[in-house]
Amino acid sequence: MTTGDARIIICPACTTANRVPADKLVAKGKCGKCGSALFTGAPLTLTTANFDAHAARSDIPLLIDFWASWCGPCRQMAPAFTAAAQQLEPQVRLGKLDTEAERAIASRYSIQSIPTLALIHKGREVARQAGAMPTGAIVAWTRRAIGG
């Protein structure tokens, strides 16, 4: 990728596609439509309304934490996943999907156990890991999966 290349980044607030020069990704730009920050250093909440925009239309991979509120290991891993967002953005977008609220999406990805991390790029699953992990393991696993 050359410095002049641009990436499509989906706004976490309004799901508008923003064209961002690759060399400006670290500048933490704002959405051209709503003015919200394109990267917040925290996972976004994935729903039926915003899932496909982030999973299929964005040029950066989406790391999904499939979880449920009743799951102890899921609740235990939540702070580690949030901390991983601060280290992985803007190369990767992190999102949390509540498997109880979004059963159709969980079913589409055949989620059998939680927590499960799935890395999606351009609508295609590229890696999956089941079980709770600490921040360092989440970051290392993700970087290996994206080849970085």
Rank of each mutant, 00 (worst) to 15 (best):
Met77Arg: 01
Trp67Gln: 10
Ala130Gln: 14
Lys96Asn: 04
Ala130Val: 13
Thr47Cys: 13
Gln86Asn: 09
Arg143Lys: 10
Pro43Ala: 05
Leu63Arg: 10
Val92Asn: 04
Phe66Val: 02
Thr15Phe: 06
Gly4Gln: 03
Val26Tyr: 13
Ala132Asp: 05
Gln112Asn: 04
Leu88Gln: 01
Ala145Val: 13
Ala78Thr: 06
Glu125Thr: 15
Gln112Ser: 07
Tyr109Met: 08
Ser69Arg: 08
Ala84Met: 02
Phe66Gly: 03
Arg128Glu: 08
Cys31Pro: 14
Val26Arg: 14
Ile138Asp: 03
His54Asp: 07
Pro79Asn: 00
Gly147Ala: 04
Arg124Ile: 11
Gln91Ile: 00
Lys24His: 09
Phe81Ala: 02
Asp52Trp: 00
Met133Pro: 12
Ala140Glu: 13
Phe66Thr: 03
Gly4Ile: 00
Asp52Thr: 03
Ile146Cys: 02
Cys14Ser: 14
Pro61Lys: 07
Ala140Thr: 11
Arg124Tyr: 10
Thr142Trp: 02
Ala22Phe: 06
Thr3Cys: 08
Arg124Asp: 12
Gly147Asn: 07
Thr2Lys: 14
Ser110Ala: 12
Thr82His: 10
Thr40Ala: 05
Ile105Ser: 13
Lys96Pro: 02
Pro134Gly: 05
Gly136Ser: 03
Ala130Met: 14
Asn18Ile: 11
Ala55His: 15
Tyr109Ala: 09
Pro90Ile: 08
Arg19Pro: 04
Arg75Val: 04
Cys31Lys: 13
Ser107Ala: 15
Asp65Met: 00
Glu102Tyr: 12
Met1Gly: 15
His121Gln: 15
Ile8Phe: 10
